[in-house]
């Protein structure tokens, strides 16, 4: 009961945030937090719940982003209309990558996904139809409202919020159904899960495909807001790492973990970019590296888990004695 009150309170705050903080910088910052929260929440399904750490998720992000810009450039579609195209392509690519690589355990899967992402970046850099190294642009002037080209970040903020709520709703449903239980079991102990009839390979693939499709939506939204995509912003390894770190910092495998991570990291990055200007680009990598080390050393399950554990510890655990009796 108390938990739902807290959630409603936080949701209310998120809804009124851009009305309270009306400067363009803060509104844009809010929109970006939500955008990356979408991407990180999508990653969370395969990386957090199923425990298959993909470091190549930018492929799906890029797929969504490139679909919107390419279909605008070649066919004049409004960028947002390419959402189904990007999703379908991402799910297809995920199936293609997933079938051979999800058999690999742990780090080998991560490495395979990095290789695929880099390969995609190199290929796109050499394909004229996709703008090659220069990239593709969206509508210069909004033709209709469907182009979703606004100067203010406010409409984007609410659009991203709506999409994020859908993604979180889907994750919540998954968490409480058989697939969610199975994914956690596979993450904890794949061999034991298989002995209980869990088709581990199939469920990992499902998680990867769902995650890929949703990540692609984040890519399309990104391209719609920026109106531009190039191999670095759409397929660069830094975006993969950013998505992963947000989920891990907030709490991988927790519903709101990625949102917490995005709310910490995006402002940090925007502020440091503002302070350091263009020279800060290289420094971002250094900061991310440091964050990875800190998470791995001190908070392997993320900040949100740390907080929840603290709250749980504050209450007495009733079954503690019984545990010892049986154990």
């Amino acid at each position: 009961m108390k938990r739902s009150v807290w959630l409603l309170l936080i949701l209310a705050l998120v809804i009124v945030y851009p009305l309270l903080f009306t400067t363009p910088f803060l509104q844009r910052l809010g929109a970006l937090v939500l955008l990356y929260a979408i991407a990180a929440s999508a990653w969370n399904i395969v990386g957090g719940y199923a425990g298959q750490v993909s470091v190549g998720h930018v492929v799906f992000f890029g797929c969504g982003a490139y679909a919107s810009m390419a279909f605008f450039t070649h066919f004049g579609w409004p960028p947002i209309a390419a959402v189904p195209v990007g999703m379908a392509a991402s799910v297809g690519i995920a199936a293609l990558i997933g079938v051979p690589t999800l058999r690999l355990s742990g780090h080998y899967f991560s490495m395979a996904t990095i290789a695929v992402a880099e390969l995609a970046r190199l290929i796109v850099t050499n394909v004229e139809a996709l703008g090659a190294a220069v990239g593709l642009s969206g509508p210069v002037m909004p033709r209709t409202v469907f182009d979703l080209s606004f100067t203010s970040a406010l409409p984007y903020y609410y659009l991203f919020l709506a999409v994020l709520l859908v993604v979180l709703g889907l994750t919540y449903w998954m968490e409480n159904s058989r697939i969610g239980f199975y994914l956690r079991a596979i993450k904890d102990n794949e061999r034991a899960a298989r002995s209980l009839g869990v088709q581990a390979g199939r469920y990992k693939l499902y998680a990867y495909m769902i995650s890929a499709g949703l990540t692609s939506v984040a890519g399309t939204l990104y391209a719609t807001m920026y109106g531009f995509i190039d191999p670095e912003s759409g397929l660069g390894i830094l975006t993969s790492v950013k998505i992963l770190i947000m989920a891990a910092l907030g709490g991988a495998g927790l519903l709101f973990g990625p949102l917490v991570g995005a709310a910490i990291l995006v402002p940090l990055e925007e502020i440091s970019n503002n302070l350091l200007g263009g020279k800060g680009a290289g420094l971002t990598f250094v900061v991310y590296g440091a964050i990875i080390m800190i998470i791995a050393r001190f908070y392997p399950s993320g900040l949100l888990k740390l907080l929840l554990d603290r709250m749980a510890a504050a209450k007495p655990a009733p079954s503690d004695k019984q545990v010892r009796d049986v154990a």
């Binding site: 956690r184 079991a185 904890d188 102990n189 061999r191 034991a192 899960a193 002995s195």
Partner: peptide, 10 residues
């Protein structure tokens, strides 16, 4: 299993 393979975090 000989060495218990429980789902530790569940």
């Amino acid at each position: 299993f000989q060495v218990p393979q429980t789902f530790e975090t569940m």
